[in-house]
Protein backbone atom coordinates (compact mmCIF):
# COMPACT_ATOMS: atom_id res chain seq x y z
CA UNK A 1 0.00 0.00 0.00
CA UNK A 2 1.36 3.39 -1.01
CA UNK A 3 0.91 6.34 1.31
CA UNK A 4 -2.15 8.22 0.25
CA UNK A 5 -0.93 11.64 1.30
CA UNK A 6 1.83 13.45 -0.55
CA UNK A 7 4.09 13.70 2.46
CA UNK A 8 5.41 10.59 4.16
CA UNK A 9 7.13 12.62 6.89
CA UNK A 10 6.32 16.11 8.00
CA UNK A 11 7.71 17.92 11.01
CA UNK A 12 7.02 21.40 12.33
CA UNK A 13 9.46 23.06 14.69
CA UNK A 14 10.66 19.71 15.96
CA UNK A 15 13.21 20.10 18.76
CA UNK A 16 14.93 17.76 21.15
CA UNK A 17 16.98 18.88 24.10
CA UNK A 18 18.51 16.05 26.12
CA UNK A 19 18.60 16.09 29.91
CA UNK A 20 22.32 16.87 29.60
CA UNK A 21 21.33 20.21 28.06
CA UNK A 22 22.47 19.33 24.55
CA UNK A 23 20.11 20.68 21.90
CA UNK A 24 20.41 17.89 19.33
CA UNK A 25 17.54 18.93 17.06
CA UNK A 26 16.56 22.55 16.78
CA UNK A 27 13.27 23.69 15.28
CA UNK A 28 13.41 21.22 12.42
CA UNK A 29 10.94 21.49 9.56
CA UNK A 30 11.31 18.41 7.41
CA UNK A 31 9.15 17.25 4.52
CA UNK A 32 9.72 13.90 2.88
CA UNK A 33 7.50 13.23 -0.13
CA UNK A 34 5.80 9.91 -0.57
CA UNK A 35 7.62 7.63 -2.98
CA UNK A 36 11.01 9.33 -2.93
CA UNK A 37 14.39 8.32 -1.58
CA UNK A 38 15.30 11.19 0.71
CA UNK A 39 18.87 11.57 1.86
CA UNK A 40 19.33 13.04 5.30
CA UNK A 41 22.85 14.33 5.18
CA UNK A 42 24.98 15.80 7.89
CA UNK A 43 28.29 15.48 9.69
CA UNK A 44 28.62 13.27 12.75
CA UNK A 45 26.75 14.79 15.69
CA UNK A 46 24.55 16.97 13.48
CA UNK A 47 21.35 15.46 14.87
CA UNK A 48 20.50 12.89 12.18
CA UNK A 49 20.05 9.89 14.46
CA UNK A 50 18.19 11.93 17.07
CA UNK A 51 15.76 13.06 14.35
CA UNK A 52 15.23 9.49 13.20
CA UNK A 53 14.66 8.39 16.80
CA UNK A 54 12.06 11.14 17.17
CA UNK A 55 10.34 10.03 13.97
CA UNK A 56 10.34 6.41 15.18
CA UNK A 57 8.82 7.34 18.54
CA UNK A 58 11.88 6.23 20.50
CA UNK A 59 12.44 9.75 21.80
CA UNK A 60 9.85 12.23 23.00
CA UNK A 61 10.28 15.69 21.42
CA UNK A 62 10.93 18.69 23.64
CA UNK A 63 8.73 20.76 21.35
CA UNK A 64 7.23 20.68 17.88
CA UNK A 65 5.10 18.15 16.07
CA UNK A 66 5.60 15.40 13.56
CA UNK A 67 3.46 13.22 11.34
CA UNK A 68 5.05 9.99 10.21
CA UNK A 69 3.23 7.73 7.76
CA UNK A 70 0.05 9.62 8.48
CA UNK A 71 0.07 9.41 12.26
CA UNK A 72 1.91 10.55 15.38
CA UNK A 73 5.40 9.04 15.76
CA UNK A 74 5.38 5.91 17.91
CA UNK A 75 1.63 5.37 17.60
CA UNK A 76 0.52 1.91 16.44
CA UNK A 77 -0.97 3.49 13.29
CA UNK A 78 2.39 5.03 12.37
CA UNK A 79 4.49 2.04 13.39
CA UNK A 80 2.32 -0.34 11.36
CA UNK A 81 3.43 1.43 8.15
CA UNK A 82 6.99 2.13 9.20
CA UNK A 83 10.05 -0.06 8.95
CA UNK A 84 13.18 1.30 10.57
CA UNK A 85 16.77 0.52 11.34
CA UNK A 86 18.03 3.21 13.68
CA UNK A 87 21.76 3.40 14.42
CA UNK A 88 22.94 -0.14 15.18
CA UNK A 89 21.02 -3.23 14.10
CA UNK A 90 20.04 -4.59 17.53
CA UNK A 91 19.05 -8.24 17.89
CA UNK A 92 19.24 -11.09 20.40
CA UNK A 93 22.75 -12.58 20.21
CA UNK A 94 21.66 -16.03 21.38
CA UNK A 95 19.04 -16.37 18.64
CA UNK A 96 19.64 -17.21 14.99
CA UNK A 97 18.94 -14.64 12.31
CA UNK A 98 15.73 -16.46 11.42
CA UNK A 99 14.57 -16.68 15.05
CA UNK A 100 15.30 -12.99 15.52
CA UNK A 101 13.00 -12.27 12.59
CA UNK A 102 10.41 -14.60 14.13
CA UNK A 103 10.53 -12.50 17.30
CA UNK A 104 10.19 -9.27 15.33
CA UNK A 105 7.36 -10.77 13.25
CA UNK A 106 5.48 -11.72 16.40
CA UNK A 107 5.80 -8.21 17.83
CA UNK A 108 4.65 -6.72 14.53
CA UNK A 109 1.84 -9.28 14.11
CA UNK A 110 3.25 -10.20 10.72
CA UNK A 111 2.70 -13.74 9.34
CA UNK A 112 5.67 -16.07 9.58
CA UNK A 113 5.52 -16.56 5.82
CA UNK A 114 7.09 -13.07 5.39
CA UNK A 115 10.38 -14.19 6.92
CA UNK A 116 11.85 -16.27 4.09
CA UNK A 117 11.19 -13.68 1.34
CA UNK A 118 12.93 -10.89 3.28
CA UNK A 119 15.84 -13.19 4.13
CA UNK A 120 16.17 -13.93 0.43
CA UNK A 121 15.94 -10.26 -0.47
CA UNK A 122 18.89 -9.37 1.75
CA UNK A 123 20.75 -12.55 0.75
CA UNK A 124 20.88 -14.06 4.22
CA UNK A 125 19.03 -17.33 3.66
CA UNK A 126 22.18 -19.44 3.87
CA UNK A 127 23.23 -17.95 7.22
CA UNK A 128 19.76 -17.57 8.72
CA UNK A 129 20.19 -20.57 11.01
CA UNK A 130 23.37 -19.22 12.58
CA UNK A 131 23.34 -17.19 15.75
CA UNK A 132 23.27 -13.41 15.43
CA UNK A 133 26.41 -13.08 17.56
CA UNK A 134 28.41 -14.87 14.86
CA UNK A 135 27.39 -12.40 12.13
CA UNK A 136 29.76 -9.96 10.47
CA UNK A 137 28.94 -6.24 10.45
CA UNK A 138 27.57 -6.50 6.93
CA UNK A 139 25.32 -9.44 7.81
CA UNK A 140 24.03 -7.57 10.87
CA UNK A 141 23.20 -4.59 8.69
CA UNK A 142 21.40 -6.81 6.21
CA UNK A 143 19.42 -8.50 9.00
CA UNK A 144 18.49 -5.03 10.22
CA UNK A 145 17.14 -4.18 6.78
CA UNK A 146 15.31 -7.52 6.64
CA UNK A 147 13.63 -6.78 9.98
CA UNK A 148 12.66 -3.32 8.77
CA UNK A 149 11.08 -4.88 5.66
CA UNK A 150 9.06 -7.55 7.48
CA UNK A 151 5.99 -5.34 7.68
CA UNK A 152 6.28 -4.46 3.96
CA UNK A 153 6.30 -0.83 5.13
CA UNK A 154 5.26 2.21 3.13
CA UNK A 155 8.02 4.20 4.78
CA UNK A 156 11.48 2.84 5.41
CA UNK A 157 13.92 4.65 7.69
CA UNK A 158 17.54 3.57 7.40
CA UNK A 159 20.19 5.16 9.58
CA UNK A 160 23.65 4.97 8.00
CA UNK A 161 22.91 1.61 6.35
CA UNK A 162 26.40 1.26 4.85
CA UNK A 163 28.19 2.05 8.09
CA UNK A 164 30.94 -0.47 8.72
CA UNK A 165 30.48 -2.27 5.40
CA UNK A 166 33.33 -3.20 3.11
CA UNK A 167 33.30 -1.79 -0.46
CA UNK A 168 31.49 -4.82 -1.89
CA UNK A 169 28.91 -4.71 0.91
CA UNK A 170 28.43 -0.99 0.36
CA UNK A 171 27.73 -1.50 -3.34
CA UNK A 172 25.26 -4.30 -2.56
CA UNK A 173 23.49 -2.21 0.07
CA UNK A 174 23.13 0.73 -2.33
CA UNK A 175 21.69 -1.58 -4.97
CA UNK A 176 19.28 -2.94 -2.38
CA UNK A 177 18.15 0.56 -1.40
CA UNK A 178 17.40 1.37 -5.02
CA UNK A 179 15.46 -1.89 -5.27
CA UNK A 180 13.48 -1.06 -2.12
CA UNK A 181 12.17 2.08 -3.73
CA UNK A 182 10.23 -0.02 -6.24
CA UNK A 183 6.51 -0.04 -5.71
CA UNK A 184 6.31 3.54 -4.52
CA UNK A 185 7.93 3.00 -1.14
CA UNK A 186 9.39 6.03 0.58
CA UNK A 187 12.93 5.67 1.89
CA UNK A 188 14.44 8.10 4.37
CA UNK A 189 18.13 7.47 4.46
CA UNK A 190 20.60 9.16 6.77
CA UNK A 191 24.24 9.32 5.93
CA UNK A 192 27.37 11.37 6.33
CA UNK A 193 28.70 9.92 3.07
CA UNK A 194 28.16 12.35 0.25
CA UNK A 195 28.63 9.97 -2.64
CA UNK A 196 26.14 7.63 -1.04
CA UNK A 197 23.28 10.12 -1.11
CA UNK A 198 24.41 11.35 -4.51
CA UNK A 199 24.12 7.81 -5.88
CA UNK A 200 20.91 6.73 -4.17
CA UNK A 201 18.74 9.73 -3.30
CA UNK A 202 16.15 11.76 -5.21
CA UNK A 203 16.32 14.65 -2.79
CA UNK A 204 18.67 15.63 -0.04
CA UNK A 205 18.23 17.50 3.22
CA UNK A 206 21.37 18.81 4.87
CA UNK A 207 21.34 19.07 8.66
CA UNK A 208 23.92 20.90 10.74
CA UNK A 209 23.79 21.59 14.47
CA UNK A 210 20.25 20.23 14.59
CA UNK A 211 18.89 22.51 11.88
CA UNK A 212 17.99 21.86 8.28
CA UNK A 213 20.32 24.16 6.37
CA UNK A 214 19.44 23.13 2.82
CA UNK A 215 17.05 20.90 0.95
CA UNK A 216 16.65 19.96 -2.69
CA UNK A 217 17.93 17.66 -5.40
CA UNK A 218 21.68 17.17 -5.65
CA UNK A 219 21.77 19.41 -8.72
CA UNK A 220 19.78 22.11 -6.93
CA UNK A 221 22.20 22.07 -4.05
CA UNK A 222 25.13 22.35 -6.43
CA UNK A 223 23.50 25.27 -8.18
CA UNK A 224 22.82 26.99 -4.85
CA UNK A 225 26.51 26.89 -4.15
CA UNK A 226 27.52 28.40 -7.46
CA UNK A 227 27.04 25.32 -9.56
CA UNK A 228 30.46 25.27 -11.17
CA UNK A 229 33.95 26.52 -10.36
CA UNK A 230 37.33 27.06 -11.93
CA UNK A 231 40.02 24.56 -11.11
CA UNK A 232 43.60 25.82 -11.38
CA UNK A 233 46.72 23.72 -11.03
CA UNK A 234 49.77 25.95 -10.95
CA UNK A 235 53.34 26.26 -9.66
CA UNK A 236 54.18 27.79 -7.25
CA UNK A 237 50.73 27.34 -5.76
CA UNK A 238 51.14 29.92 -2.94
CA UNK A 239 51.98 32.66 -5.41
CA UNK A 240 49.10 31.65 -7.64
CA UNK A 241 46.72 31.79 -4.66
CA UNK A 242 47.91 35.29 -3.68
CA UNK A 243 47.41 36.50 -7.25
CA UNK A 244 43.90 35.11 -7.73
CA UNK A 245 42.87 36.35 -4.27
CA UNK A 246 43.84 39.84 -5.44
CA UNK A 247 41.56 39.42 -8.45
CA UNK A 248 38.47 37.90 -6.77
CA UNK A 249 37.11 37.84 -3.24
CA UNK A 250 39.38 35.70 -1.00
CA UNK A 251 36.39 33.65 0.26
CA UNK A 252 35.81 32.53 -3.35
CA UNK A 253 39.18 30.77 -3.37
CA UNK A 254 39.61 27.37 -1.81
CA UNK A 255 42.46 24.91 -1.70
CA UNK A 256 41.41 21.53 -3.08
CA UNK A 257 44.35 19.15 -2.72
CA UNK A 258 47.18 20.52 -4.89
CA UNK A 259 44.84 22.77 -6.86
CA UNK A 260 42.85 25.95 -6.34
CA UNK A 261 39.09 25.95 -6.67
CA UNK A 262 37.55 29.29 -7.52
CA UNK A 263 33.82 29.91 -7.09
CA UNK A 264 33.67 32.42 -9.94
CA UNK A 265 32.07 32.79 -13.33
CA UNK A 266 34.01 30.50 -15.73
CA UNK A 267 34.16 33.36 -18.24
CA UNK A 268 36.91 34.88 -16.06
CA UNK A 269 39.22 31.98 -16.91
CA UNK A 270 41.12 33.78 -19.68
CA UNK A 271 41.88 36.92 -17.66
CA UNK A 272 42.98 34.89 -14.64
CA UNK A 273 45.23 32.74 -16.82
CA UNK A 274 46.82 35.86 -18.43
CA UNK A 275 47.57 37.37 -15.04
CA UNK A 276 49.11 34.20 -13.62
CA UNK A 277 51.35 33.63 -16.65
CA UNK A 278 52.44 37.27 -16.84
CA UNK A 279 53.51 37.11 -13.17
CA UNK A 280 55.67 34.04 -13.80
CA UNK A 281 53.35 31.31 -12.54
CA UNK A 282 53.35 28.06 -14.52
CA UNK A 283 49.74 27.02 -15.15
CA UNK A 284 49.53 23.30 -15.87
CA UNK A 285 45.76 22.98 -15.73
CA UNK A 286 42.84 25.40 -15.87
CA UNK A 287 39.34 24.07 -16.41
CA UNK A 288 35.73 24.38 -15.37
CA UNK A 289 34.96 22.01 -12.53
CA UNK A 290 31.50 20.91 -11.48
CA UNK A 291 31.08 21.82 -7.85
CA UNK A 292 31.23 18.56 -5.94
CA UNK A 293 28.54 17.76 -3.44
CA UNK A 294 31.33 17.63 -0.89
CA UNK A 295 32.12 21.27 -1.47
CA UNK A 296 28.47 22.17 -1.14
CA UNK A 297 28.22 20.12 2.01
CA UNK A 298 31.26 21.78 3.55
CA UNK A 299 29.92 25.18 2.67
CA UNK A 300 26.48 24.47 4.09
CA UNK A 301 27.66 22.90 7.31
CA UNK A 302 30.27 25.63 7.83
CA UNK A 303 33.17 23.28 8.28
CA UNK A 304 36.35 25.35 8.52
CA UNK A 305 38.17 25.49 5.19
CA UNK A 306 41.80 24.67 4.86
Amino acid sequence: MVLAQTLAVETHGLSKRYSTGVLAVNNLDLRVRAGEVYGFLGPNGAGKTTTLRLLSGLLHPTSGTAVVAGAAPGSPASLARLGAMVETPAFYPYLSGRDNLRVVARYASVPRSRIEPVLKLVDLTDRARHKFKTYSTGMKQRLGVAAALLKAPDLLILDEPTSGLDPQGTIEMRALIKELKQGGRTVLLSSHLLNEVELTCDRVGVIAKGQLVAEGTVDELRARSGGSALLIRATPLDQARRLVESMVKPEQVRLDGDALLLSVDPSQAASINRRLVSDGVDVSELRVSEQSLEAVFLELTETPQK
Binding site: G74, V86, E87, A90, F91, P93, Y107
Partner: peptide
Protein backbone atom coordinates in the same frame (compact mmCIF):
# COMPACT_ATOMS: atom_id res chain seq x y z
CA UNK B 1 22.14 -3.94 27.13
CA UNK B 2 21.60 -5.33 23.64
CA UNK B 3 19.62 -2.25 22.54
CA UNK B 4 16.90 -4.63 21.41
CA UNK B 5 14.42 -2.42 23.25
CA UNK B 6 14.54 -0.06 20.28
CA UNK B 7 13.97 -2.94 17.84
CA UNK B 8 10.88 -3.93 19.84
CA UNK B 9 9.51 -0.42 20.19
CA UNK B 10 9.55 0.31 16.48
CA UNK B 11 7.23 -2.61 15.79
CA UNK B 12 3.48 -2.25 16.14
CA UNK B 13 2.54 -2.52 19.85
CA UNK B 14 2.43 0.44 22.22
CA UNK B 15 4.97 0.66 25.01
CA UNK B 16 2.33 -0.37 27.54
CA UNK B 17 1.41 -3.42 25.46
CA UNK B 18 5.08 -4.37 25.10
Amino acid sequence: GWLTVQTILIQKPTRAAV
